[in-house]
Structure formats: structure tokens, C-alpha cells
Nucleic acid binder design. Structure first.
Length: 317
DNA sequence: GCGTCCAGGTCTACC
DNA sequence: GGTAGACCTGGACGC
């Protein structure tokens, strides 16, 4: 689908704000979709607004201490004023533009582990997904699979049911919306995309989302424990997956991160990962309290630097 | 080449 | 309420 420029707006994030680190994270986490591209302080990406594909070109015009982000909006037809206002708010929230990192940095600089990562990744804001369903797909595909297979499953879903938008000379793949997946036969879907048992969870979750489950922004506005309680109502979403979808509420320790944080906290990787997950999670929350997620996020993005600084060999993702 | 293990968890039947 | 076992698939590993 070809999109034309339909408007634009400027976002002024709270400094420090490093555009590159925020939209193109060192560990490779995408902002909105795996199909986005980045060059010359510019990100071409896309999302859906009320099912409608929207192309976005985000350009950094400022500096880390005086940040400005110019957003060009591309769509098939003109946007109403109210839609552009809503889009502006969505992009601003997803970029974490209003996040003030000062309090976290003050806390982190007194911590033996975190002081290294906040210096290395100064100005990296925590971003948020634009779609609950896309986060659900990610959280379910991460389960019981190595990272390569998780990526293969998500790519298969995008290839078969996603949508490519073209704008500003770029092509961006958008992930499918819940409405499309909700209509599928779970067994066929699982077979087509090599999802195994996950296929039925994704289709059932899509049906729940289609029938009025709270949207991502509503979830984010809920108190963390209420949001988590709500999220685990979705099929295939348990404790870990809920923390992936709404990370502000938790410390998403899994079979990979249990090695990393086990080594950081206790000086060695646990012998029995499954048994150690709860212990490591509790230790993270005890040490870092309300900053647990930010600590997890910064550490996960800075493993190479942290390995060097602390003289330990942290397993990269 | 073949068999086994287990991976960025969750659900459910059973006690 | 707690817990063992099942669940898809495929790469890694030992033999």
C-alpha cells in the first residue's frame, strides 16, 4: 500500500534524550515493527491507528540535552484534526518523551551495577509498544523457544498476515491486527507459521482483544498490579509474558535473563534455571524496587559494556 | 546419522 | 492451593 505525506508535528522530549539510543536500541529491540529502518538520525516506521496503516518518519533535529523530534505522517487519505492529535499523543507516549530520567539516574549512580549502564546509555528513554496485540504475539513467541526460532515465528506471521506500506521511498512491514488473526483456524495458523502450541493462544488472544479487551494505553494507565491481573486473563499470557507486555510493573526474568542476573547478583549462573527464576526475580525487586524494570531494561541493552566493566562474561541475547 | 535434551512459560488435570 | 506433566519445534550435543 502506497502512502502519501498527510501532515506532521514536532515532539520535544524531556532531556536527556538520545534519539538514536531510544529508537534503535543496542540490543536490537524495535520501536514499533521489525520492518522499520534507520539511517542518518532518521527512523522510518509505522503503526495502525484504528486499523488504518500509518507511515512515520521520525527525524532528530536536536541534541541529547536540547532534543527535538520532527515527525512526518504518511497515510492513504487525509487525517482529521482529532486523529492527528491522537497520533501525536500516541507517538509521544511510545517514545517515552515525557519521561524524566533524573530520579532513576540519581538512584542508579549509587548502585554498583547500574552506575556503569546509565553512563554508557545516557539519554536512552524507555519506549512503549503501540499495539497490545503485537506485544502479545511477541510475548507468546518468546516462550519455550530460542531467540532465532522466536524471530522466525514472528517473521512468518508478518510475511503471511502482515502488510507492507510504502512511503518516502521506504518499505515498512506492519504486523497484522487482531481482527485478521481472530478469524483464523488455530491449527492452520499454527502450521502455516510454525507456531506449535502457541497458535491457539494467539488466535484466542486476538478474539479477546477484538471483543473489547482494554487497549495498551488503558493497560498502561492502570495501577501495575491491576494491569498484570488483567493481562493474565489473556490466553497464553502468564507472569513472565505480562511483564514483557507491561514491563513497568515487573522484572521479566526468563531462562536467558536468569543467567545474566544470576551472575550479576550471586556471582554465578544458576545450575537449575527454572528453579532460580523466582529467586533472581525477587532479588532484583528487592535491590531495585520501583526501578526494577528500568534497571532490567538498561542492563539488557548494555551487556557488552557491563561485561567489560565488571570483569564477568554476560551471555548476550 | 540418531537419540535426547531443552529453550527468553503456560495451562490443566490431579491431588 | 500446589504441582507434575504436556505442549510444538528445532538446534545443540553426545555417542
Amino acid at each position: 500500500m502506497r502512502l502519501r505525506v498527510r501532515g506532521g508535528f514536532e515532539i520535544v522530549p524531556v532531556p536527556p534524550f538520545d534519539f538514536r539510543l531510544t529508537v534503535r536500541k543496542p540490543a536490537g529491540w524495535d520501536l514499533f515493527t521489525s520492518g522499520e529502518s534507520f539511517a542518518d538520525a532518521t527512523l522510518w516506521t509505522g503503526l495502525r491507528q484504528e486499523r488504518r496503516p500509518i507511515g512515520l518518519k521520525l527525524r532528530s533535529l536536536g541534541t541529547v540535552e536540547r532534543p527535538r523530534v520532527l515527525v512526518n505522517v504518511y497515510a492513504a487519505r487525509n487525517l482529521a484534526e482529532v486523529d492527528e492529535q491522537r497520533l501525536r499523543k500516541t507517538v509521544s507516549v511510545c517514545l517515552g518523551a515525557d519521561q524524566d530520567l533524573k530520579e532513576f539516574y540519581d538512584f542508579a549512580l549509587k548502585d554498583e551495577i547500574l552506575r556503569h549502564v546509565v553512563k554508557s546509555l545516557y539519554g536512552m528513554h524507555d519506549t512503549q509498544a503501540a499495539s497490545l496485540f503485537n506485544s502479545v504475539i511477541l510475548a507468546i513467541c518468546l516462550q519455550m523457544a530460542r531467540l532465532k526460532r522466536s524471530n522466525d515465528m514472528m517473521e512468518a506471521i508478518n510475511r503471511r498476515y502482515g502488510e507492507t506500506i510504502e512511503f518516502d521511498g521506504k518499505k515498512v512491514m506492519l504486523q497484522p491486527d487482531a481482527g485478521r488473526i481472530a478469524k483464523l483456524d488455530p491449527k492452520s495458523f499454527a502450521k502455516e507459521c510454525n507456531l506449535g502450541y502457541r497458535g491457539k493462544y494467539i488466535v484466542s488472544a486476538a478474539k479477546m482483544i477484538e471483543s473489547g479487551f482494554p487497549a495498551i494505553d488503558e493497560i498502561m494507565r492502570m495501577p501495575p498490579d491491576v494491569a498484570k491481573e488483567k493481562l493474565v486473563e489473556l490466553p497464553g499470557i502468564g507472569d513472565y509474558a505480562a511483564d514483557i507486555i507491561n514491563p513497568h510493573a515487573g522484572f521479566p526474568i526468563d531462562a536467558w535473563s536468569v543467567d545474566v542476573f544470576g551472575l550479576l547478583f550471586f556471582g554465578k549462573e544458576p545450575e537449575n534455571k527454572r528453579e532460580a527464576i523466582e529467586k533472581v526475580k525477587q532479588e532484583g525487586i528487592r535491590r531495585w524496587g520501583k526501578w526494577s524494570w528500568m534497571a532490567f531494561f538498561y542492563v539488557a541493552q548494555d551487556l557488552q559494556n557491563l561485561s567489560r566493566r565488571l570483569g564477568v562474561k554476560l551471555r548476550l541475547q
